[in-house]
Amino acid sequence: MSVSFLAQRAVKLLVTLASIVIFIQGAFVIVTHQVLTKTFLTHDPIRMQKHLDRSKKSFIILLITILTIVAPSGVRITTDNRSIPKNTMVKDLRTGGIISSMKQKSVLISNHQIYTDWVFLWWLAYTGDLAGNVYIMLKNSLAKIPIMGYGMRNYNFIFMNRKWSKDRINLANHLGNLDHNARGVGRLAGKHPSLDIASGKEVWSDNGAATKDHRQIRWPYTLIIFPEGTNLSANTREKSRVFSEKANLPIFNNLVLPRVTGLRFSLQELRNSCEVVYDTTIGYSGVKQNEYGQDIYQLSNIFLRGHSPDLVDIYIRAFNLKDIPLDDEEEFTKWLLDVWHEKDKLLDTFYAKGSFDLDPNTHQVTTGTCKIKSSEVAQFLILPLLSLAALVAKILRSFC
């Protein structure tokens, strides 16, 4: 083996170890912040929520910090300016990142290719200063992970059993709370629902005006939903094909058939507060048509081996909630399948040309780097650097 090869391997190993140390120490800092918040601010729910939101923002800062060190990705965001105002996404010429002005209360739907799709979408919310207001639906088993599960429960993420009979009430209660806080008439405004003992459903009364608290009246949210419910893979594609043939539904080239019930229910529950539904389509460099991103960009490959996409393509368009047929299941199903058909055609173009290749007269393309502010990166590097300094000092003393 050459010296240069061994040096490259050594550097790669050091970077991997550094990312592990940064993640462990960063997670410890976040959870400690949450414990202190819930211990000392229980008497002040608004300040407590602001601190928990700050800890939520800290988590995506931690993840992007590690990605920036291990394997930075470029981003190319294409916005449909027929539904999204021009310059909603702009490049920060000073840092190379992206700054956005997305709506404060939104539902964001997307295709699902790799396990870190939600990381890039959460980062997208970060560009609009909404990282502390992101909500994600996750498998119930993830809530039981030591330490991490505790942290995610404090984020009020929605943990699902994937059985609608169980998930319906759980989802209704979470979304009811989200909706009422967003309108200034929820728990954070000092109001509380009654409980239907038989069903376990929280019943809200919308009587009364929003509380005029100078610290926060209405609470924003970005709810991220993957209607497919799972990553695209050989297994899920085949299951989707078989089901679609039996049910006489479309078979997509690049997508799994979306699930109607959960998305429709969520939009109905949030109809009084949601300003917009963002439809995003994600494509990754290095993945060819009929390949599977989840096989190429596995979690371990990304965070430990530095194998992440060089470029993440995100197409965004917007729908007004009043234009979506929520009250007619058949019409809503048709609407969602039409959205997925258009998304499938976009991905056909992406795999053929390497971009979405849309009309520049109606679409704006913004390129940058998936990164965060340097000042916010520092909060997760100080502790590891101090630890490293202490270790080096100890080693040097041992030689003295």
Rank of each mutant, 00 (worst) to 15 (best):
S4V: 04
S19V: 14
G354D: 11
I282R: 02
T65W: 10
S4M: 05
Q34K: 07
D179A: 02
T68W: 05
F265I: 02
D328Q: 07
F332H: 14
W340Q: 11
K163L: 12
I61C: 13
G283T: 08
L267E: 01
V21E: 12
N87T: 01
N177L: 03
S300L: 10
H341G: 13
S106R: 11
K105T: 02
P258H: 02
T369A: 12
D313W: 01
G229N: 10
V312Y: 05
K139F: 01
P193L: 05
A198H: 10
W204K: 02
V107S: 00
A378H: 12
A234F: 07
L14H: 11
R271C: 03
Q8F: 13
A27K: 02
M160I: 15
F159P: 09
R397I: 09
G368L: 01
S233F: 01
M148K: 02
S300R: 07
A172E: 15
R187H: 04
G149H: 04
Y115R: 11
N231Q: 09
C274G: 00
G200A: 06
R76F: 03
G149E: 10
L195A: 05
V15Y: 12
G149R: 14
K86F: 05
A352V: 00
D117N: 09
W204P: 05
L93D: 13
Q294H: 11
Q268S: 08
S266E: 06
A318T: 03
R54K: 13
D323W: 01
L346H: 08
S100D: 10
W164L: 14
F303M: 15
G200L: 09
F303S: 02
K139T: 02
H33V: 03
I46D: 01
K345Q: 13
H341C: 11
R76D: 09
V134A: 05
S308C: 09
L121D: 07
A7Q: 11
F23R: 08
S100L: 09
G368E: 07
A209P: 05
I314L: 15
K239R: 11
S300T: 08
V3Y: 07
V11C: 08
F23S: 08
S101L: 02
K212Q: 12
S110C: 15
G293E: 06
Q216P: 02
K144F: 10
L175A: 07
S101W: 01
I296M: 05
K288P: 05
S194K: 14
D338Q: 15
T367C: 12
L336M: 15
I69P: 06
T116C: 14
F265C: 04
R187Y: 00
M137F: 15
L62H: 03
F226N: 04
D196L: 08
L142N: 01
G176F: 12
F243R: 04
D279I: 03
K12W: 15
Y221F: 15
L130R: 08
